[in-house]
């Protein structure tokens, strides 16, 4: 059985299990909640007709993969390792690549589903729709994949599903609070904001806002201008590259630190 077929088959089971896990629904709910929070905030215009509340809701697009990706894989992979499920899967011939692939597929699919709901909420709130849906899908997908691998990096550090949930909160909250969707990054010192621009959550949020508004927001709202299709993609390349870099880094870390067995070597 090839790894691709194994991945797709495991992804089906991951979906079945996701629907049955109460904790998984909590992560879905939290990512949807991120769209609801700014709905009644003052919507002062920032980019043409687009207001600050709209931008906060759009930035929440970049948080979906972050919440589901860090929260769900770290939780279930830790629980499965401790209950020997991973070990049994391995003796049944499953490869790590298939396991990781299935999980990232699930997180990506769930993130895109929440994004569709998010688009509905934004449309209901301000009547706007994404200007570049392909870039929006790419932003959500890259965010989901990179954050899934980050979530998988947490599993070797913890011994129980409960401690995995606690540990996952640290990077999740840090990236949420510094990503610009909960609080404006302008309240942080300039040097810190400069550092934050290299975070995957910042890149995902900027890509989401650019794709949704059609504005080149990568250098800040003050200098943002409406960009054409090709112009916007060229401006987006550094953010896409940054997300790819984080994805590779987290993937390598996840593969190198992954443990099948609860017993320490």
């Amino acid at each position: 059985m090839g790894p691709v077929r194994q991945t797709l088959r495991l992804a089906r089971t991951e979906f079945t299990l996701f629907v049955r896990y109460k904790t998984a629904w909590m992560f879905l709910g939290l990512s949807l909640f991120m769209f609801v929070v700014p709905m009644n905030l003052p919507n002062d215009p920032v980019l043409g007709d687009i207001g600050s509340a709209d931008l906060a809701m759009i930035a929440a697009m970049g948080s979906i993969g972050l919440i589901i990706g860090i929260g769900h894989p770290s939780n279930v992979f830790t629980a499965r390792r401790e209950s020997l499920v991973l070990k049994q899967l391995r003796v049944n011939g499953v490869t790590p690549g298939a396991l990781f692939g299935a999980m990232t597929l699930l997180v990506t699919a769930m993130s895109l589903a929440i994004a569709v709901l998010g688009v509905g909420l934004i449309y209901a709130n301000s009547g706007s729709l994404p200007q570049d849906p392909v870039m929006l899908v790419l932003a959500i997908t890259l965010s989901a994949v990179s954050m899934s691998f980050l979530g998988l990096c947490i599993t070797p550090l913890v011994r129980t599903a409960e401690s995995a949930q606690m540990a996952a909160m640290v990077p999740m909250m840090f990236l949420l609070f510094t990503g610009g969707s909960i609080m404006p990054t302008s309240m942080f010192p300039d040097a810190f904001v400069e550092m934050l621009s290299f975070l995957p959550s910042t890149a995902a949020g900027q890509l989401a806002q650019a794709s949704y508004t059609g504005y080149d927001v990568f250098s800040g709202y003050e200098s943002a201008t409406r960009a054409g299709f090709a112009e916007l993609w060229v401006a987006a390349l550094p953010a896409v590259g940054l997300l790819l870099l984080w994805t590779v880094l987290f993937a390598v870390l996840a593969f190198r630190t992954f443990r099948w067995d609860p017993r320490q070597p």
Binding site: M1, Q6, R9, L10, T13, T16, L17, R20, Y21, R80, S83, L84, V85, L86, K87, Q88, L89, V91, N92, G93, V94
Partner: peptide
């Protein structure tokens, strides 16, 4: 596929049904 094992513990996904568990193993080999 040439080796199989019954581990000392029960490494089962408890939220699947019995048929789903065997079908999953069936579809992976």
């Amino acid at each position: 596929g040439r080796t199989g094992a019954v581990l000392q513990g029960n490494g089962l996904m408890e939220d699947l049904t019995v048929r789903e568990s065997i079908t999953l193993a069936h579809d992976l080999v």
